[in-house]
Design a protein around this nucleic acid. Structure first.
Length: 391
RNA sequence: GGGUAGGUUGAGCAGGUGGUGAGCUCAGCUGGCUGUAGACCAGCCGCCUUCGGCUAUGGGGGUUCGAUUCCCUCCCUGCCCA
């Protein structure tokens, strides 16, 4: 597709959106060094070179075909050079399927007071020991080259969450564009794809401009950033529509960063998004809640202590195959480590299965027709009031 | 039997030398997590319908305007001595 990306990644749209415009949803295939990723797809997050509580066999079992790791965290610990010496990230974590590394840009936001941004880069104070570190686009790319993931991501400056003024958004977006060019210039590995990140906040014109600018550069894929904060679904969907229009004839894969609830992903697929990642399913699982078609269960609730049913009848995950809600509820109360693994297995299985259902519908050409059904199915998961009748 | 240290809201405690004890940690109940400083965080947790009120420091007496605090007595628990 592009000078740097032709060898590192290719994306093929298998089923173009229907001509009637009922949806932009599309089935695709992303090919990277370590394999093929069917899209729409969800990437579990393994910040520290591990999806918390799971091992690689668990990840295969839940259906993960690509995972995300974090540049900033691995740079700090154990150190990207060490990982490189040990044979690269895949070998280090014993995962031979595709990996995407986030650039560390998100930590510009998530680390709050621990960082200062200037034109050259970002100065972080390590959340581990307080030491000072300086990240630049060039360093972010170099670290990612050392880690050796299939896909690297440009270093960006996400717009801080909350009510940012237009000037602040414009400033961060313009800097993200300059850093995108520097990231591209610093990128050397022919076997590693590089994605660029769109910002622009929720300002329609800035979002459109940013999409145009990033799309004008020879990236292998387009990340849509800054849309997993505290904006409303309507605001997010509007921003996605803007990018969707700009990218209408762009053949590259579109990755919406940080979104992971089923309803959110469903709406985004509808608007042409191919890839997602989020901490949500795994974190929610670790903190005691599991997703099922009828809603969500908070396994910390008293009523599950006597519930002999599996979390979800018919679910093929480790938790549902062998254990009862009562048992897992007990494990959570006792803070037993198996609780985290079982709940995480379930939620990731559920999430990845949800994406598989979307792909099936796209393949069958029934996605538009299934939207209402999938919507209601997904909507119940994030609904505030969920009536769950335990059998 | 004699000493001694204690008995505080589920548990464990803090505090209180006469005038506001509903404070802490567990446990318990509930909610929230979206490019992971997250096996985390938040709220509730004596009773009542309230930003308001009431009741609570083992039981019973007493002194006092007022007692969780001082006095008497009883009960219970730990330890020591017989």
């Amino acid at each position: 597709m592009t000078a740097s990306g032709a060898a590192a990644a290719s994306f093929e749209v298998l089923t173009p959106p229907p001509a009637d415009g009922s949806t932009q949803g599309r089935l695709g295939r992303l090919t990277v060094t370590h394999g093929v990723v069917e899209t729409p797809q969800f990437m579990p997050v393994g910040t520290n070179a591990t999806v918390k509580a799971l091992d690689p066999d668990d990840l295969v079992a839940v259906g993960a075909s690509i995972i995300l790791a974090n540049t900033y965290h691995l740079y700090l610990r154990p150190g990207h050079e060490r990982i490189e010496r040990l044979g690269g990230l895949h070998r280090f974590m014993a995962w031979d399927r595709p990996i995407l590394t986030d650039s560390g840009g998100f930590q510009v936001v998530s680390l709050g007071d621990l960082r200062v941004v200037d034109e050259e880069g970002v100065t972080f104070r390590s959340h581990l020991d307080g030491s000072i570190h300086r990240f630049t686009p060039e360093l972010a790319i170099a670290v990612q080259a050392a880690l050796g993931a299939d896909v690297a991501v440009a270093f960006d400056q996400p717009v801080p969450p909350g009510a940012s003024s237009r000037a602040v958004v414009a400033d961060a977006t313009a800097r993200t564009h300059r850093w995108a060019e520097r990231s591209l210039a610093a990128h050397r590995r022919a076997d590693q794809a590089l994605f660029g990140i769109v910002q622009g906040g929720l300002e329609p014109d800035l979002r459109a401009d940013s999409t145009r600018f990033i799309a004008s550069l020879p990236f292998d894929g387009i990340c849509l950033g800054g849309l997993a904060g505290d904006e409303t679904a309507d605001e997010r969907n509007a921003a996605l529509d803007i990018s969707g229009q700009v990218l209408a004839d762009d053949p590259r894969v579109r990755y919406l960063m940080g979104l992971g609830s089923p309803i959110d992903m469903l709406e985004a697929v509808h608007r042409g998004v191919d890839l997602f990642d989020s901490v949500l399913p795994a974190r929610v699982a670790r903190t005691g809640q599991v997703w099922i078609p009828d809603g969500r269960l908070n396994l910390r609730n008293q009523r599950f202590l006597d519930d002999a049913e599996p979390i979800q009848d018919g679910c093929p995950c480790l938790a549902c195959r062998r254990f009862s809600r009562a048992y897992i509820a007990h494990l959570f109360r006792a803070r037993e480590l198996l609780a985290y693994r079982l709940a995480t297995c379930h939620n990731l299985t559920f999430t990845l299965d949800f994406m598989a259902r979307i792909r099936s519908a796209l393949r069958a050409g029934t996605f538009p027709g299934m939207l209402p059904e999938l919507r209601s199915r997904a909507g119940r998961i994030s609904a505030d009031e969920v009536a769950v009748q335990s059998a």
